[in-house]
Write a protein that binds this DNA or RNA. Structure first.
Lengths: 219, 219
DNA sequence: TCGCAATGTGACTGATCGGTCACCTTCAGT
DNA sequence: ACTGAAGGTGACCGATCAGTCACATTGCGA
């Protein structure tokens, strides 16, 4: 039982890794199962033993992995972040998210691109499930926001919209400053920020302090 | 000269319209030239008389149209917006953008989805040109921001990053509150905002006033 | 050691679709 | 009216790829 099943899980993971990388590199539509099989070092037929639903089941399994990763990040972050100032908690969360997506570029591209595509092109039930997972994940940011609103520490606004806004700005800034992957010549020069920490500060400043609230007298 | 050429332009426009709608509905990869031809009420071969580069040339022509539309919107907006308070100017711009994309959903989906896809999957030169058009377009928002920064009205931050942030938040909120197009059942309920104006206020409040700056004493 | 059940495999198939081209229609100029 | 060039057309072609299946391989139990 153990040996066999452990191997099975390892193979499944290898396939998921290959699929994740390829879907991110070439896009779901352009990646072929032959390539996935080749990269995972299995025959194509074997993919169908592990993912009978074929290419689409593979994609959803990849999504599940990505959301699990994000949820783990949120859970871990908020577990250690009690009773610190809300702005600091979210500044660090934003920095963590930037780091997470920066290390794990495949996750980043899949979440901004393929989730989007499924939402737009996919059929009802599948999309609904996907959106629900996405919203559940993002909703993990909401409770501390609500608490802070109740405590009067931050402005009262729809918490769900604020959570989506934070996530959206993380993705947006990464998009803005990492338009690669293979980055042609005339790009990348004017990115404004050198480090992910600077980027996190920028996002935090805009979202928490606002453009209008001037820091000091200013010139 | 006149009659013939006018017709030619009208046909070209009809093809572009059909392609825009179909690319937005089904995605570039899934839309077929047969469908485009059918919807435009032309034979497929005719497409190649107007767009010898085939499907890809058609896509880039569609992009050009979309960016032209956005540029016209920016130009028109800033032409009438001298010496009003910067926050009001951008609140109205955000409302206009929301309205523009809301009316012109195809433009919205293409800009968030297919431009993204080209950036990630397309080859060097094509992507560079596309990014340049996008950046030129968004850059039209920068000058008034720089002026306001120089005047000390708003916080000094990288203007390009701020402009991309504004645009990104417009797109992000539309994404958040219109996940259709065909909208399955379990969705759409929890959108937080009833009107585009409320949405514009939300974005403006977050970006200009910030979450931390409390309006009045608050409870 | 043998046999068989479980699993791996990749050549094959059917469907799809971008792009082509030989033919047809239209219409401006005479 | 006639004619020829310009432009429209859709059946066709070749390439691609998801998914299948008959066969090979593996490893466990006896």
């Amino acid at each position: 039982m153990s040996r066999r099943e452990r191997e099975r899980l390892a193979r499944r993971a290898a396939m998921l890794d290959a699929a994740t990388a390829l879907f991110a590199e070439k896009g779901y539509a352009s990646a072929t199962l032959d390539e996935v099989a080749e990269r995972a070092e299995f025959g194509k037929g074997t993919l169908y033993n592990y993912f009978p639903g074929g290419k689409e089941e593979l994609l959803f399994a990849v999504f599940d992995d990505l959301f699990d990763g994000l949820r783990a990040l949120f859970a871990e972050h908020f577990a250690h972040a009690d009773d610190r100032p809300i702005r600091a908690v979210y500044r660090d969360l934003i920095a963590r998210l930037l780091h997470h997506f920066s290390v794990n570029q495949a996750a980043f591209y899949l979440l901004i691109k393929e989730v989007q595509r499924m939402v737009i092109e996919g059929d009802g039930a599948k999309v609904a499930g996907l959106m629900q997972r996405r919203d559940e994940t993002i909703a993990m940011m909401e409770a501390p926001l609500r608490d802070a609103m109740d405590a009067g520490t931050i402005r009262r606004l729809p918490a769900s919209a604020v959570a989506h806004t934070i996530m959206g700005n993380v993705k947006g800034m990464l998009m803005y400053l990492e338009p690669p992957p293979d980055c042609p010549e005339p790009y990348a020069a004017q990115t404004s920020f050198q480090t992910l920490d600077e980027t996190a500060d920028f996002i935090t400043t805009i979202l928490f302090d606002g453009l209008c609230a001037l820091p000091e007298s200013n010139a």
